[in-house]
Simulated assay, not measured.
Amino acid sequence: MNPMSICSSSSSSSSTKSWVVHGLVVGAAVAAAIGAHTYFYFRRSRRFRSRVIGIIPARFASSRFEGKPLVDILGKPMIQRTYERAKLASMLDQVVVATDDNKIAECCRGFGADVIMTAESCRNGAERCSEALQKLNKKYDIVVNIQGDEPLIEPEIIDGIVKALQSAPDAVFSTAVTPLKPGDAFDTNRVKCVVDNLGYAIYFSRGLIPYNKSGQVNPDFPYLLHLGIQSYDAEFLKIYPDLPPTPLQLEEDLEQLKVLENGYKLKVIKVEHEAHGVDVPEDVEKIERFMREKNLS
């Protein structure tokens, strides 16, 4: 099947596009209301953030799933499937893989990807992206962190979070959420998110948020699942590793909380996205079953 099939399939694609468009309209309205209010590095340059790179951070050592980027998914390494999806996004000027592992690097070069070697000491994907950014010869305004465990990420979502960050000059970070399935409500590998009325993140948690007095899932509440993709203002990403770890970030083990705890704004778009990422070995079978059902090659 053509790799664009998941994007051009009727209901899922149009739903994704309509949600993305909605998020961009809200973002543009917020940007207009904010006017000249910007962070210190934006005051140095009012230039539109146009140059965009996609970076796929990948490490072999993972506490939950060692060697995850190289796991086979219907005949291809997962990192290759993620890379091929990212290359379909129209807003990315370049896509590279950032890794600290030679096996991953060799695999990626084998299917034609550009690779940047990074230190083993990187504590999370954002820090790996930051190091890779500073090793590039070209300058970029926006960096999209595309998690290597999202083999079915839709190019429209990548484009959507880039446009959301471009339309929100007060934000240094943007990401996407999708409706949470009831069965994932108490799965700590599925990160939940709550968003304010202007489309900015309030909080992320591995627990169910919001949590009601009954302690039960409310079937009428639109809980949100955070997708493993985010974009950063490039100047902010350079200082991100130097920001000290924050209490909520450490407790939840979620890197985006360090952004919020330090007072920065994080823009969120809502999309319809059926397939989730691969967090543990059991998720591989779920992804393959989904791909067979949708006739995705």
Rank of each mutant, 00 (worst) to 15 (best):
Ile146Tyr: 07
Arg81Gln: 14
Arg81His: 10
Ile73Ala: 14
Lys87Cys: 14
Pro77Ala: 03
Lys68Arg: 13
Ala126Gln: 10
Ala176Asn: 10
Asp159Val: 12
Arg64Met: 13
Thr175Gly: 08
Glu84Val: 09
Arg64Pro: 05
Ile161Glu: 01
Pro69Glu: 12
Arg109His: 11
Tyr83Ala: 01
Leu133Trp: 00
Ile153Lys: 05
Asp159Met: 12
Gly125Val: 00
Gln80His: 10
Phe111Gln: 03
Ile116Phe: 04
Ile142Trp: 09
Ala98Glu: 05
Ser63Ala: 14
Ile104Glu: 07
Thr82Gly: 12
Leu165Ala: 11
Met91Cys: 06
Ile146Ser: 04
Glu84Pro: 08
Gln94Phe: 05
Leu74Tyr: 05
Pro77His: 05
Ala86Asn: 09
Ser90Pro: 00
Val143Phe: 13
Lys103His: 04
Ala86Ile: 06
Ile79Met: 11
Met117Pro: 08
Lys68Glu: 01
Val71Asn: 01
Val162Ala: 03
Ile79Lys: 05
Ile158Phe: 01
Gln80Cys: 11
Lys76Gln: 15
Met91Lys: 05
Met91Arg: 07
Ser90Asp: 04
Gly112Leu: 06
Arg123Thr: 12
Leu92Gly: 03
Met78Asn: 08
Gly160His: 15
Ala132Gln: 07
Ser130Gly: 02
Ala126Asn: 12
Asp101Gly: 10
Cys107Glu: 06
